[in-house]
Design a protein around this nucleic acid. Sequence first.
DNA 1: TTGAAAGCGCTAACAC
DNA 2: GTGTTAGCGCTTTCAA
Lengths: 322, 322
Amino acid sequence: MANIKQVAKQAGVSVATVSRFLNNKDYVSQEAKAAIERAIKDLNYRPNQVARSLTTKQTNLIGLIVPDITNPFFPQLARAVEDTALALGYTVVLCNSDEQQEKELHYIAMLRQTYVAGFIVASNLISEQSYLDLNIPVVALDRSPESLLPNVSTNNFEAAKLGASYLIERGAKHLICLRGTVDVASSNERVDGFLAAMTEAVDYEILIGDYGFDNAYKLMTTYLQQGKPVDGIFTCSDYAALGVLKAVKEAGLRVPEDIQIVGYDGIQLGELVPPGLTTVAQPVYNLGEQATRMLVNKLEGKDNPDTRIVLEASLCVRGTTK
Amino acid sequence: MANIKQVAKQAGVSVATVSRFLNNKDYVSQEAKAAIERAIKDLNYRPNQVARSLTTKQTNLIGLIVPDITNPFFPQLARAVEDTALALGYTVVLCNSDEQQEKELHYIAMLRQTYVAGFIVASNLISEQSYLDLNIPVVALDRSPESLLPNVSTNNFEAAKLGASYLIERGAKHLICLRGTVDVASSNERVDGFLAAMTEAVDYEILIGDYGFDNAYKLMTTYLQQGKPVDGIFTCSDYAALGVLKAVKEAGLRVPEDIQIVGYDGIQLGELVPPGLTTVAQPVYNLGEQATRMLVNKLEGKDNPDTRIVLEASLCVRGTTK
DNA sequence: TTGAAAGCGCTAACAC
DNA sequence: GTGTTAGCGCTTTCAA
């Protein structure tokens, strides 16, 4: 691969001029421009990003950290982020922390050393303070509106309340809330929303799980074996709802006749899984797009009063409710 | 962030010695070692990878290119690759080409400039020659065993034959093969496998689609409206099978009573979707692991006769077949 | 066993 | 408008 020196020589100018041309800086005469353009074409020259970032201590890389790439919600989110970033001139490095703190730290360290421009964090394994300590722009995505970090999310509380209320509205009397990991703000907020929807006419129980499929399946299978009465289940993620659905069916119960289910997220797969998953749908694409724009605004030092965007989720009624 | 010079100063040695220590090269006296270790700890020093790769023209980055991150097969594959790579000391950069050649080229160019060590390619948008021209190790994953590139895959032909045969075995008489993009080798091989399973007792039709959900859904919906007789469908991906399943159900047909379906890939979601997707299951994790090992072997110049690994797929019978 | 110094490819003063 | 040159942080001869 050719380097800037060769281009300069071929074009009969200095490397500084070539560099200016490359970065649209200062004035470069028309003749010089033309000569450089030719040389670049002739030599099939591409600027070396590594050298560039060694000097500038900058890149146009955005690290996107997701907790579990096998949860279909995150690929959908990732796609939105990538789309938007690419359109704005940034490249996304997708990091799957796989629910392991160690992996997340590894990715952060690696990207940090690569002069990553900023992060979009959709996982919850590392403290917000740690991210702040990085001293580079970070945006939290799909976490809590109360986050210390600039963030984009839905109103977890209201959204969960909406979903839980609907279960009651459709006649559920014995509810379960399958919640995500404890101490995770967004997860807590969703549980609070669920609780806010409870009335005196119903009873409920809270099961502690995570947003994954496997745990949801196991927890619900165990629970159903106990034979306690249940006719409505609210899960804090769609992926978990799918696990619940499987457990319920295997237990020989009918959905929605015996048990109604409402998920959370709005993954595309929700419509595939017969009888169709009723869910509190987050505006997935918009979530990803807004987070990316917010980060890029920060990166480019734009005036951006927006340091928190809260989008509305909506109830998407399908077959798992009556 | 501290740099090597500061470490050297603090430790009372030269930068060269620190560098040797960092890379376990040549001899470094015990005293020097101790002093350097202390200094590194005191300064919380981390080598700057950018500077390092500018000098060495190397990194331990592996680019993993997938065609569609929203197809659940690829996240599963990605996870296996990441796991293995991390264990072997490499970091995976996951690139979703999103079925767009432009995006794929963008990622390749960007990683190439970053001195990426090698690629694992699970997409089919760019010619194999283009990858060979990169002049760095590349391994094709889940493509064709006939690939010019070193590759890891299942025996597409046999696997598809297995799936199609099973449909016939279970009594299907009017079959459809929903194939992937034309001119893609792995896709062609699967169709050939399907064809090889056909007997005189049945009739069949081949529909051209892709591995995605949307197209499968649309194609099948349209097809079913025509009212032609169909009682068995083989799709070249599970994700597409889910689309077919949806179309079939919407058309008011029963699965498997009226129409039997067999997918291909073995995604986890196959078991969730009632009545459970019968599929030709690829050994997903193993596929990803082997590809990563093959690439790393090449990167490290190990003697590796293996330039092609063909794994066996197996029939996973669930509810979409009788 | 260690240090001095050149150089990786590029940007950014600074001088002309 | 343009060229010279000093780094960016690291590895790697080459000498000592």
